[in-house]
């Protein structure tokens, strides 16, 4: 939970966090452990890998063992190395994209609620129309138009996903905006940025944090799907979606190597979902119960 009681120092903070962690259900503990593991792998990728990211070190499709613990890929690059660098590239890009979506959508949603009137109407209708086009299809259209490069990918998915963030940010802010302390802030003469950031934002943090986890999963899956379709991250960048695509032929021979990057994607999204589920239960006082 965010801001539990008065915390006197870093030691007390980690102590409280540790106690929360011990009390959490098994699924959430598993989720947190997986997330920490992925972050460590992503940060220390160059020290963990035996070879360079796109170095060709052997012949194509070598089997597991020997110099290559997980074999080599369709171009003779070490599979384990690319898997580890994939953590850095795929997860990093999905994270940046989600941040962008939250800056745009979260900011827009709260502003719409604070301003009300025609700015709210205009923003909401634009978002309605954008959301009426299925996201993956829309992303493919935009990527055809602007070409597939990492900045374009981040921008396109970030903007498309910000519509979902806008919806939820606006919906929760509307309940806060009618409260007395907002009224008094307005009477004090505070501007829109102050009300947005200092009055509304702190009060809608828990649902937004949970939403961040869910949106991250969604963005991560979208980018992986696009990469799998050959429209996301481009070679030679190591990326889990395109690794599945490049090595998929092995599956018809009963080799599970191409499933490893797909499993890496699945495990991370499942872990994040478990943590979000636990967080939602904690902050909302068990949503399902009546």
């Amino acid at each position: 939970m965010i801001g539990v009681g008065k915390i006197s120092g870093a030691g007390a903070l980690s102590g409280a966090a540790w106690r929360e962690f011990r009390k959490a259900p098994f699924t959430a503990q598993f989720g947190l452990a997986v997330i920490v593991f992925y972050i460590l792998v992503a940060v220390f990728a160059p020290f963990l890998t035996p070879y360079a990211e796109s170095e060709i070190v052997g012949s194509e499709f070598e089997v597991w063992g020997g110099d290559f613990p997980l074999g080599t890929d369709n171009l003779g690059r070490d599979m384990l190395t690319r898997l580890i660098y994939g953590a850095r590239n795929t997860v990093g890009i999905a994270f940046v994209t989600t941040l962008l979506a939250f800056l745009l959508g979260g900011g827009g949603g709260i502003m719409a609620a604070v301003l009300g009137g025609w700015p709210d109407q205009v923003l909401s209708r634009v978002v309605d129309v954008l959301m009426s086009i299925p996201q993956l299809i829309f992303a493919m259209l935009l990527l055809t138009i602007f070409g597939t490069s990492i900045p374009v990918l981040i921008l396109v998915i970030g903007v498309l996903d910000s519509t979902r963030v806008f919806r939820i940010a606006r919906a929760v802010s509307v309940n806060v905006v009618v409260m007395d302390f907002i009224e008094s802030a307005r009477l004090r003469g505070e501007g829109v940025p102050w009300i947005t950031l200092r009055e509304v934002l702190p009060n809608i943090m828990p649902p937004l944090v949970a939403e961040f986890g869910l949106r991250f999963c969604f963005v991560f899956l979208t980018i992986s799907s696009l990469s799998f379709l050959g429209l996301g991250l481009q070679p030679p960048t190591a990326d889990w979606g395109s690794m599945v695509r490049d090595n998929a032929t092995l599956i018809t021979f009963g080799d599970i190597t191409p499933l490893l990057p797909a499993a890496a994607i699945a495990i991370l999204t499942i872990a994040v979902n478990f943590v979000v589920d636990w967080f939602l239960h904690k902050t909302s006082g068990l949503k399902d119960e009546h």
Partner: peptide, 22 residues
């Protein structure tokens, strides 16, 4: 929750591996 979080191509390839190859 797990199956929602899984990429479609992962499910597809697992089914393919089990019911078309093995």
């Amino acid at each position: 929750l797990s199956s929602i979080s899984t990429p479609e191509f992962f499910v597809a390839y697992i089914l393919l591996l089990v019911f078309a190859v093995n």
